[in-house]
């Protein structure tokens, strides 16, 4: 399985997790996180458009994953991120980590998520009946990096 995938197609987080778990040997702990397209108040989200920077995206995600493999004692890690048009409730992305013990697996999953939020070139745009708007980056997401 490719450790980093960027794709337009939908995916099944459960199936991906099972496939990942089957590839990691010697792990006693597997942690996964799935991000889901959040609806706006009163179901106002028509579609979430995710733009990315082909080439840099893959490069950034591979580098974030390599950094996690170096910092934590892992037997495996994967990142999958979608782009294109998503509906409320659709899985956007997932990360999974495997380690001998759970502490490394949990920490590495948080590390991957924190870096993915503000260091991988994705941009979200919410389209509603009233119009479209680009989602602003949150200062908390940038601050979250300082703990690593």
């Amino acid at each position: 399985m490719e450790p980093v995938r960027v794709q337009e197609a939908a995916f099944d987080p459960g199936q991906e997790l099972n496939a990942f778990t089957a590839t990691v040997s010697g792990a006693g702990a597997v942690v996964s996180f799935s991000g889901v397209t959040r609806d706006l108040a009163e179901g106002a989200l028509d579609v979430m458009e995710i733009e990315h920077y082909p080439g840099m995206t893959e490069k950034a995600l591979l580098s974030i994953r390599d950094e996690a493999m170096t910092r934590f004692s892992l037997t495996g890690a994967m990142i999958l991120h979608r782009y294109g048009r998503l509906a409320a409730g659709d899985p956007i992305m997932m990360v999974a980590t495997a380690a001998r013990h759970r502490a490394d697996a949990f920490s590495a999953a948080e590390f991957l998520m924190d870096y993915l939020k503000s260091r991988a070139p994705f941009w979200k745009k919410e389209v509603t009946p009233e119009g479209a708007r680009w989602v602003a980056a949150r200062t908390e997401d940038e601050k979250a990096l300082s703990r690593w």
Partner: peptide, 8 residues
């Protein structure tokens, strides 16, 4: 050039 990223 781009605005701050909003992945995840």
């Amino acid at each position: 050039f781009f605005p701050p990223m909003t992945g995840g």
